[in-house]
Amino acid sequence: MSCASTTLGTGELWSSMVDRVLEKIGGQGAPLLFAHANGYPPGSYRELFMHLEDHFEIDALEHRPLWGGREPPRRLRWQLFVDDLLSAMEGRYSQPVWLMGHSMGGVIAALAARQRPEKIAGLILLDPVFLPDRFVIAARLMSEKKRQQMPMLRRALSRPEHFESHAAAFEFYRGKRAFKGLSDDALSHYVLASKAPAPGGGVQLRYSGAWEAAVYGSAPSARPLMKRMRVPTLAMRGQDSDTLRPEIWARWQHWQPQARFLEIPGGHLFPLETPQATAHAAIKYVFAD
């Protein structure tokens, strides 16, 4: 795999990073680039990819929090992630590509499509993090200390980052409400993808709580983004999602009436909870003709 030598915002040379951050999943068919959720590395979506591989040639981009640094920039802008995705596309594809993104990854995919629509065949957005404008504005105006007290950020910063083993991590998450909809296999994929050996023994989060909180605290506004969208779009929401709220879902349909909107059984993690239904909806949309 070759890639153009594009200098990134923090000084890394993209051509020396590409094999590490752009994972070739496999499959055959239409090119599809996947952007993962905040805290969920690409390996978490193994079952979803398995159901897509007969129709798509899939690559997945690892976002910067997985590149090794534990601490994010003091003032994070999501444009950093968009630049990474566009750089990967520039070096990897000679034709327009389908972008599929979950949660944070869905917003990044949409931002990339707004900037370079000629590079995008279409969008498949899975429960993107479209937060209420009041949350976005408040997060921007608050001091860093106050921002870290917001419930969503506080939860991210308080998550345990170290476990004795992958098995111990599995048992911890198996008892958490957020993961109740995942099968044991799906939860195992998440645990293996999200934990790496820790220097002092055991395993630790690959995607630190500090990065997770910084991402939530710097989310962009959805309204101006989706009102200007001009590429084919399939929007999916988990029927029980507590992230893409029903009121935002309804507004999105008003902002982008030409898009296709579907609700899928499950919560915010429906791509992991019901991967077959998610993949089937994407395949049906892309290959409808």
Rank of each mutant, 00 (worst) to 15 (best):
T10F: 13
W14N: 09
D19E: 12
R20T: 11
L22M: 10
K24E: 14
Y45L: 04
L48I: 02
F49Y: 13
E53Y: 02
D54K: 09
E57C: 02
E62H: 15
R64D: 01
G68H: 08
G69Y: 01
R70I: 14
R74G: 03
W78G: 03
F81P: 05
L85M: 15
L86V: 05
S87I: 08
S87K: 07
A88L: 03
P96S: 10
W98Q: 00
W98T: 05
G101Y: 07
G101Q: 00
G105T: 03
I108C: 00
I108K: 02
A110S: 15
L111K: 13
L111P: 06
Q115D: 09
I120F: 12
G122K: 01
D127V: 01
F130H: 13
D133V: 14
R134K: 14
A138N: 12
A139G: 04
L141V: 03
L141T: 08
M152W: 10
L153V: 10
R154A: 09
L157W: 11
H166K: 15
A169E: 01
F170D: 08
F170K: 07
A178M: 15
D184L: 01
D185W: 04
D185V: 10
L187N: 03
H189V: 01
L192K: 15
A193N: 00
S194L: 04
K195C: 04
P197M: 08
P199A: 13
G202R: 02
Q204F: 00
L205F: 14
A213M: 03
G217R: 08
S218K: 09
S218P: 03
P220L: 06
P220C: 14
A222K: 03
R223S: 08
R223C: 02
V231K: 00
P232R: 03
Q239C: 06
D242R: 11
D242K: 05
L244K: 00
A250V: 13
L262N: 10
E263T: 01
E263Y: 08
E263G: 10
P265Y: 11
G267L: 09
H268S: 05
F270E: 01
L272E: 03
E273T: 05
A277Y: 01
A282E: 07
F287I: 00
